[in-house]
């Protein structure tokens, strides 16, 4: 489990990025980390990895401070950054020298993932396109079988078929002993995948709820008379809205609408989910 308690961080003392973040992310879920540009999603992932030191508050991974750089903590965690450089060697060679750090690495699984994603693990990584490199690293990260997989904008650069393969692989990856945290703006790419949504704003965590909790309390789609509308927007299909689900009606979650509702009407959302 990943927990943060009153976590604050700023790159300079004048520029505070994260403010009083208290949340917990449990295994067995795919957590979606959402927020406006510059709100600190990537910074939060870096703090979880122990790369940066919080100004105040704490981060714990299974009760251990990640900044202690204990091997047993780091070997259970992989982050796929939005931008990364891989060495100019083949994925097979890269995996051969990196696998000793991850005790549950499965070479066969990696080759399987590569096949599904359409990546040749025998060619030099610099001869691949940016999207192909990302797929190669995703295949490697999944094959490490770590219990915490952190993804920063994972679908950036992936082609349309690869996005659906990625979703399928990720859905098959998560079990009771594993969790995935996805920080993204491309919510449509991962909408069906997420089962816990975390929305950050300047004040801290605006929303941290499972998708079933959200659908229980909110209704998405066209409104009917008498609905307590929290947010609405005009689309080609007509007015789409987020409203309070008083009738217990089933509706399919629209993360984009939810996000806009949280940003434009945070107090209403906070009141519904009983959060600050």
């Amino acid at each position: 489990m990943i927990t943060t308690k009153s976590l604050s961080f700023g790159y300079t003392s004048a520029q505070q990025v994260l403010n009083n973040i208290t949340l917990s992310m449990e295994r067995g879920h795919i957590h979606g980390l959402l927020g406006c540009n510059g709100i600190g999603k990537t910074t939060l992932l870096k703090l979880i990895c122990g790369i940066m030191r919080p100004r105040s508050g704490e981060v714990r991974i299974d009760g251990i401070d990640p900044m202690m750089r204990r091997k047993e903590t780091l070997s259970e965690l992989i982050i796929i950054p939005e931008e990364f450089d891989l060495p100019n060697i083949s994925l097979e060679r890269y995996a051969a020298v990196t696998a000793p750090f991850y005790p549950r690495f499965d070479r066969g699984a990696m080759l399987g993932y590569c096949e599904e994603l359409g990546v040749n693990p025998r060619v030099r990584l610099h001869s691949l396109s940016m999207g192909q490199r990302k797929k190669a690293y995703i295949a490697f990260a999944l094959a490490c079988n770590v219990s915490m997989l952190l993804l920063d904008e994972p679908t950036n650069g992936l082609d349309i078929p690869s996005k659906s393969v990625f979703r399928r692989l990720l859905a098959g990856y998560v079990d009771e002993s594993r969790m995935v945290v996805i920080s993204t703006h491309q919510v449509a790419d991962v909408e069906q995948l997420l089962d816990n949504i975390i929305i950050l704003n300047e004040q801290g965590v605006m929303l941290n709820a499972t998708t079933s909790e959200i659908c229980e309390r909110l209704k998405f789609g066209r409104t009917v008379e008498g609905d307590k509308v929290i947010y609405s927007e005009r689309t080609i299909q007509g007015d789409m809205a987020v409203s309070v689900n008083e009738s217990g009606e089933d509706s399919s979650l629209s993360i984009e609408l939810l996000f806009n509702a949280t940003v434009t009407n945070p107090h209403a959302i906070a009141a519904i989910f009983n959060q600050k």
Partner: peptide
């Protein structure tokens, strides 16, 4: 390096 920093520092090496 910007591109390798995160991966290098999350490698399970003390």
């Amino acid at each position: 390096e910007r591109g390798t920093k995160i991966m290098e520092m999350t490698l399970p090496v003390t």
